[in-house]
Every structure is written in C-alpha cells, then in structure tokens.
Deep mutational scan, measured.
Amino acid sequence: QNEKLANELKSLLDELNVNELATGSLNTYYKRTIKISGQKAMYALKSKDFKKMSEAKYQLQKIYNEIDEA
C-alpha cells in the first residue's frame, strides 16, 4: 500500500513544474501554496511515512484543482 501511494505521489510531483508555471498570472497564494505543497511531498516521499504521504498527496491534488479552476 505504501508503494502504491508513493507512486501516486511521485506522479503528482512530476506535474509540479507544469502547475507551478500555470500560477504565473495567478494570485501569490497559489505560487506560495504549490511550492510549499511540493516541498512537503518530497519530504514525505523521503520519510516513507504513510500518513505524511497521504496528507501531501491530498494537498497537491487540492492545489492542482484550485489552479485548474482559477
């Protein structure tokens, strides 16, 4: 289960640069939040902690959705 979550989180991290570029014309909230979420996700992957990875995955998905809707 950890392996599956780690792969999903890696996949979301692969999209980080594209989504970060998409924040160029948006409010600074999005820029700041996506950077923080990305850092948390990288830390969670290194720690291999299921709870941290779950939270990081949720945060990344949430900010990606917010950027898409903005």
Results as ranks from 00 to 15, higher is better:
Gln1Asn: 09
Gln1Ser: 11
Gln1Tyr: 10
Gln1Gly: 07
Asn2Ile: 15
Asn2Ala: 13
Glu3Cys: 11
Glu3Gly: 04
Glu3Phe: 08
Glu3Pro: 03
Glu3Ala: 09
Glu3Leu: 08
Lys4Ser: 08
Lys4Ile: 13
Lys4Phe: 06
Lys4Pro: 03
Lys4Cys: 10
Leu5Pro: 01
Leu5Met: 05
Leu5Cys: 15
Ala6Ser: 05
Ala6Leu: 08
Ala6His: 06
Ala6Arg: 07
Ala6Tyr: 15
Ala6Lys: 06
Asn7Trp: 10
Asn7Ser: 11
Asn7Gln: 14
Asn7Phe: 12
Asn7Arg: 13
Asn7Met: 13
Glu8Phe: 03
Glu8Ile: 04
Glu8Gln: 08
Glu8Pro: 00
Leu9Asn: 00
Leu9Gly: 01
Leu9His: 00
Leu9Thr: 00
Leu9Val: 03
Lys10Cys: 08
Lys10Val: 06
Lys10Tyr: 05
Ser11Tyr: 07
Ser11Thr: 12
Leu12Ala: 02
Leu12Gly: 00
Leu12Arg: 01
Leu12Glu: 01
Leu13Ser: 00
Leu13Asp: 00
Leu13Glu: 01
Asp14Phe: 07
Asp14Trp: 07
Asp14Ser: 10
Asp14Ala: 12
Glu15Phe: 12
Glu15Ser: 11
Glu15Tyr: 14
Glu15Lys: 15
Glu15Asp: 10
Glu15Cys: 14
Leu16Ser: 01
Asn17Phe: 14
Asn17Cys: 15
Val18Asp: 08
Val18Thr: 10
Val18Met: 13
Val18Trp: 11
Val18Lys: 13
Asn19Met: 15
Asn19Asp: 04
Asn19Ala: 10
Glu20Gly: 06
Glu20Phe: 14
Glu20Pro: 06
Glu20His: 07
Glu20Gln: 10
Leu21Ala: 10
Leu21Pro: 04
Leu21Gly: 07
Ala22Arg: 15
Ala22Val: 08
Ala22Thr: 06
Thr23Val: 08
Thr23His: 06
Thr23Leu: 10
Gly24Ile: 14
Gly24Ala: 15
Gly24Cys: 14
Gly24Ser: 13
Ser25Arg: 11
Ser25Lys: 12
Leu26Asn: 04
Leu26Thr: 03
Leu26Cys: 09
Leu26Lys: 04
Asn27Leu: 05
Asn27His: 10
Thr28Val: 13
Thr28Asp: 14
Tyr29Ala: 04
Tyr29Met: 03
Tyr29Cys: 11
Tyr29Gly: 03
Tyr30Ala: 02
Tyr30Ile: 05
Tyr30Asp: 02
Lys31Ser: 07
Arg32Asp: 11
Arg32Tyr: 13
Thr33Ala: 15
Thr33Glu: 12
Thr33Ser: 12
Thr33Met: 15
Thr33Trp: 14
Ile34Ser: 00
Ile34Phe: 03
Ile34Asp: 00
Ile34Glu: 02
Lys35Tyr: 10
Lys35Cys: 12
Lys35Gln: 09
Lys35Met: 09
Lys35Phe: 09
Lys35Glu: 09
Ile36Asn: 05
Ile36Lys: 06
Ile36Ser: 08
Ile36Gln: 08
Ser37Gln: 14
Gly38Gln: 11
Gly38Leu: 15
Gly38Tyr: 14
Gly38Glu: 06
Gly38Ala: 14
Gln39Val: 08
Gln39Glu: 11
Lys40Ile: 11
Lys40Val: 09
Lys40Asp: 06
Lys40His: 06
Ala41Trp: 02
Ala41Cys: 04
Ala41Ile: 02
Ala41Glu: 01
Met42Glu: 08
Met42His: 09
Met42Pro: 00
Met42Asp: 05
Met42Tyr: 12
Met42Thr: 05
Met42Cys: 09
Met42Trp: 11
Tyr43Val: 13
Tyr43Glu: 15
Tyr43Leu: 13
Tyr43Ile: 14
Tyr43Asp: 15
Ala44Lys: 01
Leu45Trp: 07
Leu45Thr: 01
Leu45Gln: 03
Lys46Trp: 09
Lys46Gly: 06
Lys46Thr: 08
Lys46Leu: 13
Lys46Glu: 12
Lys46Asn: 07
Lys46Phe: 07
Ser47Arg: 05
Ser47Phe: 06
Ser47Pro: 00
Ser47His: 06
Ser47Val: 08
Ser47Met: 10
Lys48Glu: 05
Lys48Gln: 10
Lys48Arg: 14
Lys48Tyr: 09
Lys48Asn: 13
Asp49Arg: 02
Asp49Ile: 03
Asp49Glu: 07
Phe50Trp: 09
Phe50Met: 07
Phe50Val: 08
Phe50Ile: 08
Phe50Asp: 04
Phe50Pro: 13
Lys51Gln: 12
Lys51Ala: 10
Lys52Asn: 05
Lys52Val: 05
Lys52Gln: 11
Met53Val: 01
Met53Trp: 01
Met53Arg: 01
Met53Ile: 04
Met53Pro: 00
Met53Lys: 00
Met53Cys: 05
Met53Leu: 03
Ser54Gly: 05
Ser54His: 07
Ser54Asn: 08
Ser54Phe: 09
Glu55Arg: 07
Glu55Tyr: 08
Glu55Ser: 06
Glu55His: 08
Glu55Thr: 06
Glu55Gly: 04
Ala56Thr: 02
Ala56Leu: 03
Ala56Ser: 04
Ala56Arg: 00
Lys57Phe: 11
Lys57Leu: 15
Lys57His: 06
Lys57Pro: 00
Lys57Val: 13
Lys57Ile: 15
Tyr58Cys: 11
Tyr58Lys: 11
Tyr58Leu: 11
Gln59Tyr: 13
Gln59Ala: 13
Gln59Arg: 07
Gln59Lys: 05
Leu60Met: 03
Leu60Gly: 00
Gln61Asp: 04
Gln61Lys: 07
Gln61Ile: 12
Gln61Tyr: 04
Lys62Ile: 05
Lys62Glu: 05
Lys62Leu: 06
Ile63Gly: 01
Ile63Asn: 01
Tyr64Gly: 02
Tyr64Asp: 00
Tyr64His: 04
Asn65Glu: 09
Asn65Gly: 06
Asn65Met: 13
Glu66Trp: 10
Glu66Tyr: 06
Glu66Ala: 09
Glu66Phe: 07
Ile67Asn: 02
Ile67His: 02
Asp68Pro: 03
Asp68Gln: 15
Asp68Thr: 14
Glu69Val: 11
Glu69Cys: 13
Glu69Phe: 08
Glu69His: 10
Ala70Pro: 03
Ala70Arg: 06
Ala70Val: 06
